[in-house]
């Protein structure tokens, strides 16, 4: 079998294992869906977002939170899922065992990225179904919007996956993995316009968030799911899709290089 075929076999195996772990299914897979439901219900009485001066128009809380939760899901499925998963595998001996077999590292990566792609697609589909049918959110009907969705999603999920692999080197042990990774991911969600409305954050915090990829994923997703009128409260008064593509591409390349050059099956001589 060649490295690609082995990678696909790994992806099947990894996906099967993923859904057998109750904690990852809850904290990574269902988390954005749970959060969307909570926010939609909690803010449903507070009136619409982005209303006209006379209080008419605007969109529901559910509709407002859909793009942010999709972006959060992309981050969780890639960064949190893989960084914790691989750190745990390094700690419990899984990687050491694999490192003693003729499995190529690239097949292992393909397996992980494949697992991220499959689980994240299922997550986004479920999120959109719940938004549409449980919270009555109108989804875009314009093909151009969906095209934007596809490239922002693919660029976002690939970037998240390789960053997850790269970040898995940081926790010193499998046991500390969630304690190290979750705060990073959580802080990013708060400053990047997932839970809090990005336009209401102080400018300096917006600038900090702009260094990291989540802000751009959320912005790209807002351009798909929010009405055009919301564009004027963005940082530059527009969706800035070119910048979204550029920043995500830079993080993707940086993540790929870091993942490729820092990955080791085991910490040698520790």
């Amino acid at each position: 079998m060649n490295a690609i075929a082995l990678g696909l076999s790994r992806a099947r195996y990894e996906t099967r294992v993923y859904f057998r772990q109750g904690d990852t299914v809850f904290f990574t897979f269902l988390f954005p869906i749970v959060m969307l439901s909570i926010f939609s219900v909690a803010f449903s009485a507070a009136g619409n977002f982005g209303t006209n001066p006379d209080g008419s128009g605007g969109i529901t809380a559910a509709a407002f939170y859909v793009p942010g939760m999709i972006a959060a899901g992309i981050l969780l499925s890639g960064v949190q899922n893989l960084a914790v998963d691989i750190a745990v595998e390094r700690g419990d001996g899984t990687l050491k065992r694999l490192g003693g077999t003729p499995l190529p590292v690239v097949s292992y990566f393909i397996g992980k990225i494949g697992q991220v792609l499959i689980t994240s697609l299922a997550q986004v589909a479920l999120l959109l179904l719940i938004a549409r049918f449980a919270f009555n959110v109108a989804l875009p009907t314009d093909g151009g919007k969906w095209l934007t969705f596809v490239w922002v999603y693919l660029l976002g999920i690939m970037t998240s996956a390789v960053l997850g692999i790269a970040l898995s080197r940081i926790p010193r042990s499998g046991k500390s993995a969630t304690a190290v990774i979750i705060p990073i991911v959580l802080v990013l969600q708060f400053i990047s316009g997932v839970y809090l409305q990005f336009s209401q954050l102080p400018t300096w915090l917006q600038n900090v968030a702009s260094v990291f990829p989540l802000k751009w994923m959320a912005q790209g997703m807002r351009s798909v799911f929010l009405p055009e009128s919301f564009a004027r409260v963005e940082q530059n008064g527009s969706w800035d899709l070119g910048l979204v593509a550029l920043v995500l591409a830079i993080w993707l390349v940086a993540g790929l290089v870091a993942a490729r050059f820092t990955f080791r099956w085991i910490r040698k001589d520790s």
């Binding site: 195996y13 294992v17 419990d92 899984t94 065992r97 003693g100």
Partner: peptide
Amino acid sequence: KARLGIVLQSSGESGNV
């Protein structure tokens, strides 16, 4: 590596398969 078989000292993998 394909010509080797390695049985390490016991490990604590999650074993969800």
